[in-house]
């Protein structure tokens, strides 16, 4: 017999993501999914931005990795609550893992949860975790062709952070071309070039996060902000 199904393959993940979003909305917590390739500079970006959020909002991090707690240790050194989510070899986080992570955070004392996804420019972009917005990270070292090669990562990002801009002079990275390609894929995304070592753009990223997360602000309103 033939049975019509017409069901999203990730329906179960999306149901768990919706539960996460409901929990976060109830508690008026904003949640950001930080995505990018391995070595793109996600953890370094967080290390640079976190001190600039102190005093404005209470932040926690869910740190996704295949193995080790090295990234979580780096975040914990900033005195930020962090839970390491290990995928045991899996190439992406899913909403259920995030659910377990959220359960281990002191949610009553948090305004912003940043989920640092597994370093991978492809697979994680397919999985809704219950976040309110995505940040895509692209490093100068990866090359300016990556927005065109990994469009899903950039298509669904509200903010694109280009990292390691201190390397621009040493590479063939074409910043204008990368910005054009990102805009073509996602005209609504804000693009911020950064350099965590020199400090370029870091305050802009911090400002973007602070504006997303004014304490007591309406999460629904935050969702529609550019």
């Amino acid at each position: 017999m033939r049975v019509d199904v017409l069901r999203n393959v990730f329906a179960r993940n999306e149901a768990a993501a919706a539960e996460n979003r409901r929990l976060l909305d109830q508690r008026r917590i904003v949640c950001i999914n930080l995505l990018g390739g391995a070595g793109s500079g996600k953890t370094t970006l967080l290390e640079a931005v976190m001190p600039r959020l102190r005093g404005h909002m209470r932040v926690a991090v869910l740190e996704g990795d295949l193995a080790t707690t090295r990234d979580a240790d780096r975040i914990a050194a900033l005195d930020v609550p962090v839970v390491q989510l290990l995928t045991d070899g899996g190439c992406h986080l899913n909403a259920t893992l995030v659910q377990h992570g959220l359960a281990r955070l002191p949610l009553d004392e948090i305004d912003l949860v940043v989920i640092e996804n597994v370093g991978n420019p492809i697979c994680p972009a397919n999985f809704d975790l219950g976040e309110h917005a995505r940040i895509a990270v692209l490093s100068v070292a990866e090359g300016s062709d990556k927005p065109s090669k990994y469009p899903l990562l950039f298509k669904e990002a509200r903010l694109v952070v280009i990292t390691k801009c201190d390397l621009l002079a040493m590479t063939d990275f074409d910043l204008d071309q990368a910005m054009r390609d990102i805009r073509r894929i996602n005209p609504d995304a804000l693009v911020i070039p950064t350099d965590a070592r020199g400090g370029r753009g870091i305050e802009d990223v911090a400002q973007w996060l602070r504006s997303r997360c004014r304490v007591g602000a309406d999460v629904e309103c935050l969702n529609v902000m550019g």
Binding site: R2, V3, L6, N8, V9, K155, N186, D188
Partner: peptide, 19 residues
């Protein structure tokens, strides 16, 4: 430049044959 995606983000189980 820029458009709304109308197709291409599908990931669907459409139907099955079962016995």
């Amino acid at each position: 430049e820029g458009e709304g995606l109308t197709a291409g983000d599908e990931l669907e189980l459409v139907s099955i044959d079962a016995e």
